[in-house]
């Protein structure tokens, strides 16, 4: 067996889904004995069989991945309940193994995957997807890059044909529910720090959260970072369309038309709104020079 063959074989065994009792499966997908197959390359010792020794890695693989992705979706967990949430995470990870060296990226596909798997959310698919999208947007806003915002020199060079860009950390969301109410309710109940003192062993545990039940209503949100903290900011449809056009790389002359493409607002009211959108975006440092 070459090193590569060895690693492919072990990776397959280590990442094989666990049983319902969180143990290594005894039968492989082709009906063969996993114990026999593992014994071909793992030595037993006086206390553990080859199967049991590899089982440590098999369980460790799943426990690490489950923990890593679960901690990024606490509100989805609270909303669905631990039983349904665990089932969802396991299925997600089976279909979406890690393809990044960084565990930080593990949950990236969960919102879109969830959209295609209503069986894990019951009657609340749309709200669950919105909550998952918002929780992932939070991760992105937390640690993606922040570039220098537009300054007076950049402004002096602006033309109607100029193309601006949005901060890489800024996330634009069009949601079907006010999902931030659910997320904030869960965050409010999380402990600030989790230090275990040998003097005080008792750990703070989060209380049972009473979740709000938002009504269905289109919600536009900017999730962004300001002074290294993440904020959710509600915006209106016009601002959403305008910022989306900037993100798509449209020149300013097109951006201003996009904001009210189907609106009956009077020109003066539109102009007032557009001015307001740009004031807020520039004030919060959301706009940057086009990196291209």
């Amino acid at each position: 067996m070459t090193l590569l063959e060895f690693q492919r074989r072990m990776a397959e065994d280590v990442s094989r889904p666990l049983t319902a009792g969180f143990m290594m499966q005894e039968v492989g997908p082709d009906g063969s004995s996993v114990a026999e197959s593992v014994a071909n390359y793992v030595k037993p010792n006086g206390r553990l069989s080859s199967f049991e020794r590899l089982e440590i890695y098999n369980r460790q693989y799943w426990f690490r991945l489950i923990a890593a992705v679960s901690e990024d979706f606490p509100a989805l967990n609270a909303m669905l309940g631990p039983k349904r949430f665990d089932e969802l995470i396991l299925n997600y990870l089976e279909e979406n193994p890690s393809t990044s060296f960084n565990l930080r990226d593990l949950g990236a596909q969960l919102p879109s995957w969830l959209e295609d798997h209503p069986e894990f959310t019951g009657a609340h698919l749309d709200l669950a997807v919105d909550v998952a999208r918002l929780e992932w947007a939070y991760i992105e806003a937390f640690d993606r890059a922040a570039m220098p915002p537009l300054d007076e020199t950049d402004l002096a060079a602006l033309q109607p044909t100029s193309v601006l860009a949005l901060q890489p950390h800024l996330q634009l969301l069009a949601l079907r529910y006010a999902a931030e109410k659910v997320v904030l309710a869960v965050h409010k109940n999380k402990p600030d720090v989790d230090i275990v003192s040998s003097a005080v062993i008792e750990r703070k545990t989060s209380r049972q959260v009473r979740l709000p039940k938002p009504r269905r209503s289109l919600t536009y949100l900017v999730v962004h970072r300001y002074q290294n903290s993440v904020y959710y900011r509600r915006i209106d449809r016009g601002a959403f369309l305008l910022l989306s056009a900037i993100r798509e790389g449209k020149p300013l002359a097109i951006v201003v038309d996009k904001a009210f493409c189907q609106s009956g607002l009077l020109p003066s009211a539109r102009a007032k709104k557009i001015r307001q959108y740009f004031v807020h975006a520039a004030e919060l440092g959301w706009l940057i020079a086009n990196p291209a």
């Binding site: 690693q7 492919r8 990044s100």
Partner: peptide, 25 residues
């Protein structure tokens, strides 16, 4: 150690077989 193969990451520190091929690689 090793921990990834064919673009998939285990995020674990998996032991190597102590072979001359593994030394070279």
């Amino acid at each position: 150690c090793w921990g990834s193969v064919d673009g998939r990451y285990t995020h674990d520190l998996l032991p190597l077989p102590y072979t001359f091929e593994a030394i070279r690689a």
